[in-house]
Structure formats: C-alpha cells, structure tokens
C-alpha cells in the first residue's frame, strides 16, 4: 500500500487554544442549519457559529473570535467533547478552521472516530493535566505546543522558545499506529481484503437464505 509522507502524523506543532466546558456537543460545534450543503468546503466559517455571534451577527466572547488565538492549531478541551450527532461536519469544520489536533479529558466515540478518519489526532490527558495546559494556553497564547505521538507526550513550550513543561498523553494503540504509519484513511487497507470480504458475504446466513446458521 502506498503511503504519502504527508499522511504521517508523528509530531504536530502549533499554538494551543483553550476551549473549556464538558459535554460540548456537535450541534454546538456546527449548528444543523449549516448542514444544508453537499460539500464540506465552506464549513470552516461556521465553527461554533451560535456561540460566536449573536442574533444580529455581532461577535461574542469566544476563543474562536479571540485575536490572540488566530492561527492556533491545537484545541484543548475537557470531557465528552463532540457528543451527540454523528455529523462529520463538526471535525470537518474544526479542521477547516485550522485545527490539526485536539487534546482533551475524553471524547465521544463517533466524534473521535471521525477525527481519526480525517487525520486529526484526538488524544486524552488526565483532568489535572488538561486543566494545567488550559491555564497555560490561556495565559500564553503565543506558546507553541508540540504533540509527539511517537513518544506520547505534549510539550508546552516557553513563550520565548526553549523547553517547557511536558505532559503524558494517552491514545489508543490502533489510532497511534495509523497516524505514525500515515494510514488513517482506511479505505485502501479495507479494500485490500476484497477476497475475504466476498467470502464473508458468502457465509452470512441472512445473505444466503439462512441455509447456514452462522458459526
């Protein structure tokens, strides 16, 4: 299987953006009315739209409206981020708003799977570490975070450069493997088992008039 170098996600460096709050659902990340589209292209403009703008289109206080975080690439969140609707529009919208990785206490499963499928590592840390990293990025918007999936750490660099505090991160072995090998787009890996897929279809009772009873 051919893997392009660009697909490999080993180290992601970028400025962090703290986005505090538990249970931030995908309706909040991208309101349903922006799902009326047949491509994902324009979604970056509508990230957290109803939290960023009032009914008259005036800006509200929100990290995505904060000039200090313009260009930030690593989002720092709390528990159960991305719960609710399965809409891939949510991580698509974050990605198109410049987000390349997410660090949080925990993620909803469908959202996590969608992030992985887009090549966006969503990694977890203990509550205390998240809180510390959130405070740090809150105080130091210019500081660069270095997420190293190989070493399973994130380093919060000092604002002036130089080595800063290092936190341990958690990521599932399978997600880490696909990021390090650049194979997070699963279609070709799945297609390589075409013969096995056909033989599985030939063995499933409900696809074969129930003439066999499974195993």
């Amino acid at each position: 299987m051919l893997v392009s170098e660009e697909s490999i996600r080993r180290v992601i460096k970028g400025r962090g953006m703290p986005l505090p709050g538990d249970d931030i659902d995908t309706d909040r990340i991208i309101p349903a009315r922006y799902l009326k589209c047949i491509t994902f292209d324009e979604l970056g403009k509508f990230t957290f739209y109803d939290e960023r703008y009032d009914e008259n289109g005036n800006k509200k206080d929100h990290p995505f409206n904060d000039e200090r975080y313009r260009g930030a690439e690593i989002l720092v969140v709390n528990k159960n981020f991305g719960c609710g609707s399965s809409r891939e529009h949510a991580p698509q919208s974050l990605m198109r708003a410049g987000i390349r990785a997410i660090i949080g206490e925990s993620f909803a499963e469908i959202f996590l799977g969608n992030c992985t499928a887009l090549g966006i590592p969503a990694v977890t840390m203990e509550a205390g570490a998240v809180s510390e990293l959130m405070d740090f990025t809150g105080k130091e918007p210019e500081a660069v975070l270095t997420l190293d999936l190989d070493k399973k750490i994130v380093e919060a660099g000092l604002p002036g450069g130089g080595n800063g505090k290092v936190f341990k991160i958690e990521i599932s072995d399978s997600a880490r493997e696909v990021f390090l090998s650049g194979t997070w787009d699963t279609t070709s890996a799945l297609l390589s088992g075409k013969k096995e897929i056909e033989s599985k279809a030939g063995a499933l009772p409900y696809l074969n008039h129930f003439l066999m009873q499974g195993e």
Partner: peptide, 18 residues
C-alpha cells in the same frame, strides 16, 4: 451504530469498517 461520512465512504467502497 452511527458513523461519520468518511466511514460511509468506506462502507460504500468495501461493505466493511475498521
């Protein structure tokens, strides 16, 4: 279970998921 759009692509192309 629910899936995202990239996974819909995988199911279309392979009738399987990772």
């Amino acid at each position: 279970f629910g899936i995202g759009t990239s996974q819909i692509r995988d199911v279309f192309a392979t009738q399987t998921l990772s």
